[in-house]
Design a protein around this nucleic acid. Structure first.
Lengths: 340, 340
DNA sequence: GTCATGACTGACAACGTTGTCAATTTGCGA
DNA sequence: TCGCAAATTGACAACGTTGTCAGTCATGAC
């Protein structure tokens, strides 16, 4: 039993190897009757083409790589699911490759990966997707790639991408807080090495300007997309002489840290303090109160990126595409308590 | 440029293809001097063996599959990281395969996966790892596998495994709650289709018996390892005429739901209600208060499973091995408030 | 009836590697 | 120095697939 090969199919269908190959690859110029006979034989023998042999022989490869360095499991799982969906549909395999974005020889590492595993190309998640030097090196190695990046618009920098308008989304969240009546809104930065981080800050800044809300340096703190940074940052903000009435964390984990700090300080969210996150991870639904946040559609974005990559490999014309996050209002935000 | 092949190396080192192959595969009987010459050539040309060609030619494969159906991102990411660590060390690739554990043709699906991608074997996470029918089918297909399962001891059922003593760990948590002074301890089940679930219940039950704490059916509710089940279950338990003073959720997500329900009911954790989880996911550290739980060492378990699988493929003798979780005490548990 | 045309099919080589087996070299005792 | 086993090396086929190119077969125009 074991595993039928194309040879067995050919024998069973009484045709040549090549004809079977043609049927499998949907090439034209196979008579309908022959095609059916071959398909029947494939069915009977439960034949599946061997991906190794296939990619060895044809220049083409039948798997792509997914490269990331991101400590957020919710984000990664969503990206994997999306990429896998696209791969399954197109008959591709997916090779995951978590890595260190600061590794000195990342380009070589990725080239070896592509070469050894015969990958057709790479999907790069942030922050790898934002390091131009890396992108140029990979391009020099002729490795097809598609990036997921944070940008308000198509960057037109020659590298295909799926871009997410973090700035606009952060603007929406900030504007929403302002409309609730908040005038002192704290902002906790995400990681410096992620482009999404300054983008989100810019959205925050612009909303304050547009609505004429005074900016204040003491309300803005750096961090690194982590729970602990959210906790520490919130503690500092809440210790100010004039503390904020709302805090906008650059992602849900930071916001979770803010929630914890607020509780530790005996504050009641949302009445004493409004908290907003960013990402719509399951965490934002499961925290108490649940988090007002920005829905990213990570899974669709990743699926689209993988699809784009495969299309590019097939030689199709590739159009960059943008996704707009969407404001999700939950229980962690409310109008500020009127001053006693 | 592109990619050097073994042929280029052979030419450069002035030896035959086969000799290069021998050096790469660390076979004996290559003269030291020759070996060095070949290694130098490999270095100069930056040669990497092509995994497709390699696994096509040799019966052996150079990648393993990781099969799971688990909605918990923290768990999955930890499993992936562990398996990847083992794979990288042994020069293997890792193919991830999320799937539907209730799919009717799972065995065929996995066989196709193994065949098409030329996998050397599979690591099965729960609940797939616990379905004997599936295991037997895969064995009939001659697919090497290693399971991660919940069991107090080596099951000796013929399938290699890494087993985790959930029962003992649940016993430890329950005993700890009893020692704090709790006499009415609620228990929220995990998913029926996971073996870990009854195991955890048995640990809970045994501790109550050993300490002579009366059992009460109304304190035990079914669920499915989800936040929502924790929330609903806790609401029901707290609505009892004589509510529990502590609730043990079968995993951290359930416990998070309990925390939310307690807060919604105006209860102060841990003083009005103690809550314990299971798993030590990052969530248990980030919730407020942080969760008393049981540390699973998921990453090491997965790494060990992958290592076991690779050893098995290499024909080594394989010993099943057990891991004992460890009690982690955090802020969500305290002695019950004395009755007024 | 012949011939050109186009649709369809098949023989064979090749992808980059390892297994088999035979050839060559080396080392060592006599 | 010779002979023989052991160590080392190489030639060649094979893994399962697809690309190239040549061959066969109907079809329709003359």
């Amino acid at each position: 039993m074991g595993t039928a090969t194309i040879r067995d199919v050919a024998r069973q269908a009484k045709v040549s190897l090549k004809t079977v190959s043609r049927v499998i690859n949907r090439e034209s110029s196979v008579r309908e009757e022959t095609r059916e006979r071959v398909l029947r034989a494939i069915e009977q023998l439960d034949y599946r083409p061997d991906l190794s042999a296939r990619s060895l022989r044809s220049a083409k490869a039948y798997a792509i790589g997914l490269v990331y360095d991101n400590p957020n499991p919710y984000y990664i799982i969503a990206v994997q699911q999306g990429a896998l969906a696209a791969c399954r549909e197109m008959g591709f395999g997916l090779q995951i490759h978590p890595c260190d974005s600061r590794g000195p020889k990342l380009a070589e590492e990725l080239r070896d990966l592509v070469h050894r595993s015969r990958l057709a190309g790479l999907v790069l998640a942030p922050p790898m997707s934002e390091r131009m030097a890396l992108l140029r090196e990979l391009a020099a190695y002729n490795i097809p790639l598609v990036r997921v990046i944070s940008a308000a618009e198509d960057p037109h920098d020659g590298f295909p991408c799926v871009f997410v308008d973090d700035r606009d989304a952060a603007y929406a969240i900030t504007a929403y807080l302002i409309q609730l009546g908040h005038l002192r809104i704290g902002f906790l930065w995400g990681g410096k090495q992620h482009r999404s981080s300054p983008e989100r800050y810019k959205g925050y800044e612009k909303a304050l300007q547009d609505y004429g809300v005074p900016m204040s340096d003491e309300l803005v703190l750096e961090g690194d997309y982590s729970f602990d940074d959210g906790f520490r940052g919130a503690r500092r903000l809440l210790g100010l002489a004039e503390p904020p009435t709302a805090i906008f964390g650059s992602n849900d984990e930071i916001a979770a840290g803010v929630l914890a700090a607020a509780r530790a300080a005996g504050l009641h969210v949302p009445y004493d303090l409004s908290v907003a996150g960013f990402e719509d991870s399951p965490f934002s639904r499961h925290s108490w109160p649940s988090l007002t946040t920005s829905r990213q559609r990570t899974e669709q974005i990743a699926e689209h990126a993988a699809r784009l990559l495969i299309a590019q490999i097939h030689g199709g014309d590739v159009e960059n595409e943008g996704f707009s996050p969407e404001l999700v209002v939950r229980g962690s935000t409310a109008p500020p308590r009127p001053k006693a």
